[in-house]
Amino acid sequence: MIAVDGLQKVYGDFAAVVGSTFSVESGEILGIVGPNGAGKTTTLKMIAGLIEPTEGTATVAGYDASEPEMRQILGFLPEESPLYEDMTPRSYLRFFADLYDVPREAAIERAMDTLDRLELEHRDRRIGDMSKGMKRKVAIARSLVNDPAVVIYDEPASGLDPLTTNTVLEFTRELKASGKTVIFSAHNLYHVESVCDRVVIMNEGRIIARGTVQELRETYGSREYQLRADVRPSEIEPTDTTIRGDSVEHLFTADSMAEADRIREAIEAADGTVLDFRTEESTLEAIFLELTGEPMAGSRQVHDSTAKSERRTAAGETS
């Protein structure tokens, strides 16, 4: 549904985005994560046709991003909610429905349905008098007024309270369920992890990792197997030992399932019992910190090779 190929944006001597290449399948939610200035918003705006790429192409449903026709099937939610504060949600949504040439009744019905789902009741209150969360909901409803096939959300839950954030995330899942393709950027990695099918991690304009959360864990994260036992086999050193009165508990850790099996067999051979067995995996946040915490190779030059990002491709996509 969305194909991004070698997308690059340069401002003078500064490269905001360098050689981004990825694709999004129909009905999929792709998350783009990265620190401030990573190039997430610039990438999203190039896909939305708001910013002209210096190099590369972005196509949505076969349309080039620069074609106005493409914007007919696109719903875009910028990071800020730039609403017209003197309008009411109803008049605001009606105006945008007109702009998209959507039959007014259908558009209003759809918009009101969206506002119902987002639990926004004040349809005729002046937008300027609304809270930030309410405005965000109006902005989300505006992004869907044309029933778009593709939705691009830039930090949709930015600055919202937990309750509203949860509503927005839940709503994003509903969008996927209704068959829409979603690109979603966020700082909060938990949001991405809980909503997105696949993730692209950007840093300093480059894609430094990509794949499903699971693939990223496998590639960049660590998996640790933890066993708790009431005995200590002589040949194995426990990671930790806890003594509570008469009871003693030993914690053993293994990097692989085979090693964990070996520890388990040793415990059983020592007439011990495995009290607990669990797998600890890296969170996306931990992966992200590991990836971005290390110094990047090379400077942020315009014609720098994108080989690094490709080396780190986890999902095996070609570029």
Binding site: A48, P78, L99
Partner: peptide
């Protein structure tokens, strides 16, 4: 100001 025009730019209009 406040990037209000952005939404018009992203609409299917020249």
């Amino acid at each position: 100001i406040n990037r209000r025009g952005e939404l018009l730019l992203v609409a299917p209009l020249a």
